[in-house]
């Protein structure tokens, strides 16, 4: 029950922030209308939101921030990697689909891991079957069976810290 209330609060605040960013004005009428609409939508839709995890919300928020910074860095690296592979005359590719036992159980964690894996260098998430993530890896290391966890590092640990 406490968790549900917490989820409700978070969804209302997120909707209100989104409203504020979209309207981007300082008129107080806009903000009052936004507050009313965010409250109504939050109460109507919070059941659809994934449940908030346990633990200290502030340390989780901090870990999420670190996750975002590392994700940004990885995105830039991924683009340099793509540029290198595309512009190289012989295109150094060693593609394959590997199976990664991520060990992440929560729905939100899975969503963020799969999304961020797609944006990191050389990997594209395909599917989840039985909590195992299937990743198309453009540069498979070794035979692609033993060390497949390397495909999703270092983001896997950060996602575990922020969402588990």
């Amino acid at each position: 029950m406490v968790k549900r209330t917490y989820t409700l609060l978070i969804s209302i605040v997120m909707l209100f922030i989104a409203w504020g960013m979209l309207s981007s004005s300082l008129e107080y009428q806009e903000w009052i209308a936004g507050a009313v609409i965010a409250l109504a939508l939050g109460i109507a839709l919070h059941r659809l939101m994934p449940e908030a995890g346990g633990g200290n919300p502030f340390s989780r928020g901090l870990r999420f921030l670190i996750f975002l910074i590392v994700l940004g860095k990885e995105m830039v690296l991924a683009n340099i990697d793509v540029a290198y592979r595309v512009l190289h005359p012989r295109m150094p590719l060693r593609p394959g689909i590997v199976e990664v036992d991520t060990g992440i159980k929560s729905d939100l964690g899975k969503l963020f891991l799969a999304n961020s894996v797609t944006l990191t260098p050389g990997t594209l998430s395909l599917d989840y079957i039985d909590d195992k993530l299937y990743v198309h890896w453009i540069n498979v290391k070794g035979d692609g069976i033993k060390d497949s966890i390397e495909a999703v590092q270092p983001l896997r640990d950060l996602v575990e810290g922020a969402f588990e």
Binding site: L93, E99, N115, Y134, I145
Partner: peptide, 28 residues
Amino acid sequence: PLSSHAIARAAYNSGVPLWKGSVVDRYG
């Protein structure tokens, strides 16, 4: 990323083969 993930999964399920130089396929 969600849309690309959906496209890749749909491509695999409708039988688009991997490139002949691919090393490993654990998904099939």
